[in-house]
Design a protein around this nucleic acid. Structure first.
Lengths: 145, 145
DNA sequence: ACAAATCCCACCGAATCAGTAAGTATTGAG
DNA sequence: CTCAATACTTACTGATTCGGTGGGATTTGT
């Protein structure tokens, strides 16, 4: 019941892009350095995100990535669904559901459905902008103290 | 981000014991047959639950297991914590937290804390009795229709 | 032309998952 | 007292996933 590093890194990568959304195209090298993540591994995660048009990429010299939309248009749920494949806590709730002949009278299925809803309701309610805002707020508090 | 079969089987096993709580000691063989789960595998799951005094076991002829308390005293969260080790969606939130030197200014940590809370609030709010009740209700409806 | 970047594909060790196998210890019934 | 049924224990195993690394090919601004 863990979020994979792939998902956590993807979120941090997009947050990094959100923080630098006015700096043009950001090279993977810079994200890797700032976030202290292997650039090679990020190279493997990027195409997962890139497939669904949430990023805009530029190859070659001075190339890199930037967000296709502004940070409030990305929810954490949306990002994690890409990297994790699905946020369903059991296989029988996935989009192409794994067949389960017990589903009709499965006594535990409603529990998993409810859990799935609790998870997605929470994660789809948080945008990248929300996370940036809460960070800004924290820094402000630090400054006051 | 999946609940393991170990956790799902543990829940079904305890629900089976709850359904037969007035039938004395229940042999693993019977649970395995009713739930269509390998008895050998259940044998491996049982000690995880047995360690924490939620079961009462009897060895030998006519032996088996029964719940130590009544079904409303078991929450799904409590059971899954035993089999999954922890319900934390990231390692840095576990009980013996995995060290993370970035924790102090980790921008994503509040997200994972909130997710952890959403998950545990939901799962700790459901008891075995709740599940049995919802099943009974469904059967009642079927009967009416 | 060259260097910096994205892209692409294969590989790899370690851990986890989902079980199986084989045997020991304990108990009630006959 | 013996036997069969049961819980308990330990070890093993094949498949898959996790968390990467390595080696290049391709594109692009200077």
């Amino acid at each position: 019941m863990k979020i994979s590093t792939k998902g956590r890194y993807a979120l941090r990568m997009l947050l990094d892009l959100a923080e630098h959304k006015n700096d043009g195209y950001i090279a993977l090298k810079d994200i890797a350095a700032r976030q202290n993540i292997s650039k090679k591994y990020l190279e493997q995660i990027i195409p997962i995100l890139n497939r669904s048009d949430i990023l805009s990429a530029n190859r070659g010299y001075q190339g890199g990535y930037r967000l296709a939309k502004s940070p409030e248009h990305y929810t954490v749920g949306q990002i994690l669904r890409l990297t994790e494949g699905s946020l369903a806590p059991v296989a029988c709730l996935e989009h192409d559901p794994v067949e389960c002949d017990r589903a009709d009278d499965c006594i535990t299925l409603p529990v998993w459905k409810g859990l799935h809803k609790a998870i997605t309701d929470y994660l789809d309610g948080i945008t990248l902008q929300d996370i940036l805002d809460s960070q800004a707020e924290r820094y402000a508090n630090d400054y006051i103290i």
